[in-house]
Amino acid sequence: MKIIKADKIRDVISDLCIQANLNLRKDALDALKRAYSNEKGLRAKRILKAIIDNAVYAKSKKIAICQDTGFPCVFIELGQNVRIIGDFKASINKGVELGYKKGFLRNSIIKDPLLRGKSGSLPAVTHVDIVPGNRLKITVLPKGFGCENKSQLKMFNPTAGWDEIKKFIIDSIKIAGPNACPPYVIGVGIGGTADYACLLAKKALLRKITGKLANRLTGKLFKLEQGLLNDINRLNIGPMGLGGKTTCLAVNIETYPTHIAGLPVAVNISCHALRSAVKKI
């Protein structure tokens, strides 16, 4: 049994909100640098350079990478042998509130989706997974909404083939076009239920961009990811949508068992400012 105080969770989440919004993920920055050296077009190169310079400047001057400091999404992996002293749920929201205040991040959350009104930083969207062990893993993903607005879900027939699924994913990118800050990172969730496929698609964005097989048991998904990446990068949307080879930095697919009657597929797009930060307690 491990005991963790709620105040500790609050402080960790506060730091993660700031870290994620000010320091671009190293794997995302490296992917942008690779894209910069591969890109041929002058305009595309210039834009990629500005994006890289922006990340460097944000980190050095402690200013948010993007004015849209996102919807704070918090992913918790809770070891079943962890005992939390204090109000767990409240500590998550207090941490977000504190981080958004201390980091001078934008208040982009309005209390009522229909009445709208004044914006604040709360509440977070929180997902908790119970896992074996005695550790608590916290990930904060501040999700920008320009790209969140381009999310898609389709419930395919169970007999659908990969070509149909592939077309749906590529069409989603065409719909996003120049408007969601390309080059994108594409999260794809396949399987589960409608809601779970959407969650998988978002969680797929947390996976490191490596361009390698990573820890996959099978190379099958990796091949599908690489095939999609190549097809998407032939769309000539490019950085800022002004053409080029770099429409997409990575495609990450996550799968889950599903029902005999269905085949849910969700797409969650991230802009080039793919921000998340993680800490284990």
Partner: peptide
Amino acid sequence: FLTYAGCGAL
């Protein structure tokens, strides 16, 4: 006009 998207710090 367009300006540099996702470059708010710069």
